[in-house]
Amino acid sequence: MAILNVNGIHKNFGKTQVLKGVDFSMEEGEVISIIGSSGSGKTTLLRCISFLETADKGTVVLDGQTVFDAAQPMKRNDKAQREIQAKFGFVFQSFNLFPQYTALENVMLAPKLLAKERPDFKENKKEIFEEIEKNAKDLMDRAGLSEKYNSYPCELSGGQQQRVAICRALALNPKIMLFDEPTSALDPEITNEVLKVIKSLADDGMTMIIVTHEMYFAKNISDRIIFMDGGVIAEEGTPRQIFENPQNPRTREFIASFASQRGDETSK
């Protein structure tokens, strides 16, 4: 059974139709990259799945449970809604770390707040917090941040900040990780350190949707590529199908423009 079903998502901003009916589903452990030119709706789609935007039409089903239905009003502060929210890890293009907290505090904040709602919190406060800290440090160690527990975001490079942000999202044990152009705000020479972390998550079997402009990365890491154009899925398939044998003329154009751009870069 699919872990995620996205059905008929429509989203308008004022009079602009950004999403015009998007459907797809994914299996547990699958890695999907969403590619497409700016304005094709890929970021909006990711934001609709994670409740950052409220879709005008459509449903999202996670693990058999309808977690979003445009026909039903959503209560954002509701406890059940927040539990669902925690199942989606979200990584922003601009990191959005909390500047007043250290890297480790950033990773621990949300788990600590959630732990306070546990019925056994009062008796086991110390153990619970110790466990949260251990888990946070493990995540940071795996992302190569063991030296940076006590650094503030302003003291970290963009690549380090983004890795902290990934750990922060993982700390809530999400079912699906959503990445919104995770390397677009980074200098080319440090995108790799972030991509490596994402790759290692894929190798661990994490279910992920990645909106990206890093075509080679998308090609290498993904089980499936979704090409979006004009608010709909224009084509989807394996990386090989999309990159080597695209069927849709728009996909062909997009892949070709990207390939020629690469050519220009190498010829310089």
């Binding site: 929210q85 925690a86 979200f90 959005n96 809530l172």
Partner: peptide
């Protein structure tokens, strides 16, 4: 938004 996706009220 970061607060929201981290399931904070």
């Amino acid at each position: 938004e970061a607060g929201q996706v981290l399931a904070m009220t």
